[in-house]
């Protein structure tokens, strides 16, 4: 198993190819280092880095396969690349590892900056994941708070869809 060249701890699941002076240079990274630390983002803005190669290089373990479908609306990554439209809010969570580099390339950023007076929120999918974690870690006060937040969402009419585990 190859280890990530960045952190040297996690297994490498992504390789990024770059052409420098006609020479092909490859780096093996873990997804966390590649995405979370924003290592890939700025590189992708550099024309030398090829997004398509990056997308293809994502290992099946690290990201949904292009033919994988959003569990909520059934859209596949291939559908998305054909039309440019996602199918539902849940698509963002499901395709996040694939979407972030593409978003970084188009938007020059991959993180929302809330405006004045805008309280950052969490999507029902994120709340659900946090709730499960809180229960697992026996943080019951946190779990109760998260359940309240989810109930509030439901009361406003939003349905909460669970990702099949």
């Amino acid at each position: 198993m190859t280890l990530c060249e960045e952190c040297g701890i996690r297994p490498a699941s992504v390789y990024v190819t770059r052409i420098v002076n006609g020479q092909k240079v490859e780096r093996h990274l873990c997804t966390q280092c590649a995405l979370e630390k924003g290592d890939i983002g700025p590189l992708l803005q550099n024309p030398g880095w090829i997004l398509q190669e990056f997308l293809q290089a994502l290992s099946p373990a690290a990201a949904p396969r292009p033919e994988s479908r959003c569990p909520s609306c059934g859209l596949s990554w291939t559908d998305f690349t054909r039309t440019g439209f996602l199918g539902c809010p849940h698509c963002y969570e499901h395709f996040l590892p694939l979407l972030l580099p593409a978003i970084q390339r188009v938007q020059g950023a991959d993180r929302h900056v809330p405006g004045k007076g805008e309280a950052p929120e969490k999507s029902p999918g994120e709340l659900e994941k946090e709730l499960q974690r809180a229960i697992r870690e026996e943080r019951y006060e946190d779990a109760a708070r998260l359940r309240d937040a989810m109930r509030q969402h439901r009361e406003k009419g939003g349905e909460i869809r669970r990702e099949p585990s």
Binding site: G84, F85, L86, P89, Y92, E93, L96, L99, A102, I103, V106, Q107, A109, D110, R111, H112, V113, P114, G115, P120, E121, K122, S123, E126, H153, K156, G157, G158
Partner: peptide, 23 residues
Amino acid sequence: ERLPFAYHSRLGYLTAHPANVGT
């Protein structure tokens, strides 16, 4: 106050096309 807008903690308000996501 009355509607559950689709929002993601990292990406902000969610839109059909990612070119509009965030704000």
